[in-house]
Design a protein around this nucleic acid. Sequence first.
DNA 1: TCATTATGTAGTAAATTTACTATTTTTAAA
DNA 2: TTTAAAAATAGTAAATTTACTACATAATGA
Lengths: 285, 285
Amino acid sequence: MTPEPNLLAVIQRQLSELNKSEAKVAKAILNAPEEATRSSIASLAAAAGVSEPSVNRFCKRFGATGFPDFKLQLATSLASGVRYVSRAVEFSDDINTFPTKLFDNAINALMTAKEELPLKAIARAVDQIAQARRVYFFGLGTSAAVARDAEHKFFRFNVPVFTHEDPLMQRMLAASAGVGDLFFFISHTGRTKVLVEAAEIARQTEASIVSLTAEGSPLADKSHCCINVKVEEDTEQYLPMTSRLVQLVILDVLAAGVTLRRGEGFTPHLARIKDSLKDTRFQTS
Amino acid sequence: MTPEPNLLAVIQRQLSELNKSEAKVAKAILNAPEEATRSSIASLAAAAGVSEPSVNRFCKRFGATGFPDFKLQLATSLASGVRYVSRAVEFSDDINTFPTKLFDNAINALMTAKEELPLKAIARAVDQIAQARRVYFFGLGTSAAVARDAEHKFFRFNVPVFTHEDPLMQRMLAASAGVGDLFFFISHTGRTKVLVEAAEIARQTEASIVSLTAEGSPLADKSHCCINVKVEEDTEQYLPMTSRLVQLVILDVLAAGVTLRRGEGFTPHLARIKDSLKDTRFQTS
DNA sequence: TCATTATGTAGTAAATTTACTATTTTTAAA
DNA sequence: TTTAAAAATAGTAAATTTACTACATAATGA
């Protein structure tokens, strides 16, 4: 029994692959999920404009044994209070609605990412980082801030870490790379030309290339190891929001992985770094 | 409809006040709550050793309209109570456990933050940003990356935006501020000395000071408007992870708020910025 | 014993599912 | 293209399961 943590997201995702009446049912449920959990199969069928067996088939398509079981799963996934369907902010929104929408979208993205975590790629990336002699984190735009954040995390592992936002620096560093160097590219689309070019240049050296980007993208093609992030985000229309959150958490995961790899003996080292900050803060009164 | 947050606890509490057959039903449910949500009234009655109407009466006694409604409430309260606990990564963790833990922690933090969102402070911050002539985002350490991210978001609003990681630059800019300048300080603890000092300097000018930090901290005290983030994170022992995620989403919220404030006429402007990136990407094949 | 409460029986209405049929859509061949 | 066969989709009707109500019986306490 592995109940889907967020059924609505699954429905939303498969919406395009459903046939006519199934899509009608899906829309009716997405419109009023809470109500659906309290409806009978007859009233939901009426609301969707389909027959009762169609609703039943819909339920089975999504892994339920039948309608009641489906309602149960729906209620369970609704219980956390998160709206599991990404909703765009509209101009009719106000202070009471749009913050919630954005938080829900963020939570939703993390939950989806968590379900589809490419553990094998992550494990390999941890290996590579743990062994690297030097690590470069390269990103542009929003991903540059992510790269900066990564720098802040990974310098703790006694490996020299570098970030550069300047594409020319990125190219030159890529060109001068050698054995033991690791280039970590971060990009939501995986299609930013200058970044892909830098990866291409690095690829001609002995360096390893790890990327955190979209599956099948040009950047992924250039990488020895690619951590795929599947975040459905319309970056053409909106700003990247959720994708960078997922990227950050995955980098946290990698950092934790390296920490575990270093073993318990490494803890004092981390503590020393922590301690160095003590005098920079006002004490808690 | 205000469903009881934890139905099982309520049943447990009232156990002594129930009559014989109701007590039997209660025990059967407490024994196997998950199973109860999947049972029919007949099978639950059999499991409890009572008749079906007894089960029905039991349900009504606890505020449900009937057995299906009761099952729904039970399922809901079972779903919510479970995964609300942050779990630390331990050295006994492996690739199959620690990524999930970290994602869960991140999701939890966002869910908690969402429930305690300081909407009034957010609305005020949006006002101030929308009116500002210039905006400075200042943070240090992990928060520097957040500030960088903010810069990337807010320059779109036709307001000059600046970030500096250099504390000396921060001080000097704070000192030279005037009417219409907005300083936006980002800090998890709100106790970083150099940042608080910069805020103090800025406070002596005509500039407005907004901060995204912990309630009651020295930094919060210096601010005209403080957006409190309550994230329980042991930064003494671990790296800051979840707090910066919450900060990022709140900055997204602020950006969305400013966009809404600018109104629909502003959309073409945003679209133009988007378009400027088109030629930097490889086209989707 | 009587009144009151508690519990169970049986029947009914409602809801769900199954099996089957008509229709539409797709596929492949002419 | 056009046509015919195959596959899929969606609905009808009937069977089955489920939940509830009214009523009867049993238990309890005064």
